[in-house]
Amino acid sequence: MTEVALPAAAGRAERADRVSHPGRLGRWGWPVLGLAVFLALWEAVPALGLLPATLLPPPSILPATWWQEVVSGHWLAAVQASLTHYLIGLAIGTTGGVALGVAMALSPRLDASLSWVVRILRPVPGLAWIPFAILWFGVNPASAVFIIVIGVFWINLFAAYAAVRAVEPELFELADAFGYRGHAAKLAPVILPAAAPGILAGVRTGLGQAWMAVVAAELFGVEGLGQRMMQASSLLATEIVVVMMLTIAALYGIVDMLFVALRDRLLRWQA
């Protein structure tokens, strides 16, 4: 038995070694190489005439395009507008979704009352609300915020609902035994911290989802990165479109990085 088992175990160890040590290029080498190949291919396609530069602007012209956008003031204005929509929509949608999700998880009556309403509204994509957003709020920041709120509301509602439902009943009993009677008394000291990992996972998904909603909500004319992309594409200034796309990617990356740092701090009690 042992003779058979030993080589098998050694084989597993070797495989693990191969996975955890990517080779001489190390931890940074491979990603940098991959990115370089990607940019080279991207640059080559228009340079070799495989596609016109208006359809695929080469990456080499992007820094200058970005700088022109900065100097003209378009870039900062668009970023400020989009960030404002994003943060307000995110705050309202996240708070609302988490609050209703927690309430539904704790109240069987509310859960039952809203179950069909949720079933009807939840599958409706956030973008399908654009006509109503325009009718209700007009083409202005409020309608963009509204679309973003819808975009993150359901994610947070379901994440918070599931997270609270997953809190062990034993913790509720413990709280009862020490005088925390009723859900309101248990909420801050027990329920929310116990559900925090699940709730924060939903919030993080919402951070990404909200950027998609930002662009979509601005495509119909509200000032921001989405609107600037629409303007640029109608003039075939696709290099500006790409600059705005990369701006969104960078903003999302920064927001996500900050959030992960905050989350890790809040959940540092986890193994």
């Binding site: 009993e173 959940l267 009690w269 986890q270």
Partner: peptide
């Protein structure tokens, strides 16, 4: 209780 039921955080 049988399980200590400490609050993990």
């Amino acid at each position: 209780f049988q399980d200590a039921r400490l609050l993990a955080w």
